[in-house]
Write a protein that binds this DNA or RNA. Structure first.
Length: 223
DNA sequence: TGAATGATGCGCT
DNA sequence: GCGCATCATTCAT
């Protein structure tokens, strides 16, 4: 099973290197994927691949950990204080990025979910580069941007992920159905999904809205 | 355990 | 407007 999946991925890798556009168009998640209840979207994102067409080249990694933040009634959700300039993307249509600065130094990437006017998003907490690097110079770009700060797991944690990918608030509110940044399905299924409370929040701890791939080494924090 | 670091939002004038 | 507490984090001690 594991072997055939890796063969499958290698085949896709070759396909993609030779037929970039065709591959992207067929695998990219459509807006309808995000236009659903957030608690369905979040676990469904596990095993999908985030692809960023960065100024330095294309980077991609497998998503292994996410958290859901849902609506004005969720005290941990930024939208709990209502519509503000910062949280505007979450109130907008689904399938857009929502990136904000946290603790003065780290950025966090979210995927906006649910219909326009219904503020919700999924926070990307961790991802994993698949060996061999399946797109372009992913490893090189990431280790350069990460500046050797966390060589072993440079994508484990929302702040580390954005730092390694080179994502900042400049990439806020981008359309995930266009080509700069998107998520794609490569047919990889996650068989061991675990669910816990969200990390780092002081409110809304009872909601078990963190989802991660229990078989991944790249998951951040406690398992 | 705490320092680094800055935008945001709230509660006042 | 102005000041201050808060914050979906990370890393070194």
């Amino acid at each position: 099973m594991t072997f055939s999946l890796s063969v499958f991925n290698n085949l896709l890798t070759d396909l993609m290197n030779n037929h970039n556009l065709l591959y992207y168009q067929s695998m990219k998640l459509p807006r309808s994927f995000y236009n659903r209840p957030t608690l369905e979207v979040a676990p469904d994102l596990l095993g999908k691949f985030i692809v960023y067409n960065s100024p330095n080249g294309i980077i991609s990694a497998r998503i292994v950990e996410v958290e859901a933040y849902i609506g004005q009634d969720d005290p941990a959700c930024h939208a709990s204080h209502g519509l503000t300039e910062r949280t505007k993307p979450m109130f907008g249509p689904p399938g857009f990025t929502y990136i904000y600065l946290i603790y003065g130094m780290y950025n966090c990437l979210n995927f906006v979910t649910e219909p326009e006017g219904s503020p919700a998003a999924v926070l990307l907490r961790a991802a994993e580069l698949i060996e061999p690097a399946e797109i372009a110079d992913g490893h090189k770009i990431i280790s350069h941007l990460n500046n050797a700060k966390s060589a072993k797991h440079p994508l484990s944690g929302p702040g580390k992920f954005c730092r390694s990918f080179g994502l900042t608030t400049e990439q806020n509110n981008l359309d995930l159905t266009e080509d700069q940044i998107f998520v794609e399905d490569r047919g990889l299924a996650i068989k061991n999904i675990k669910q816990t409370g969200r990390i780092g929040v002081r409110v809304g701890k009872k909601r078990l809205w963190r989802f991660f791939d229990a078989d991944s080494e790249a998951v951040s924090g406690k398992r």
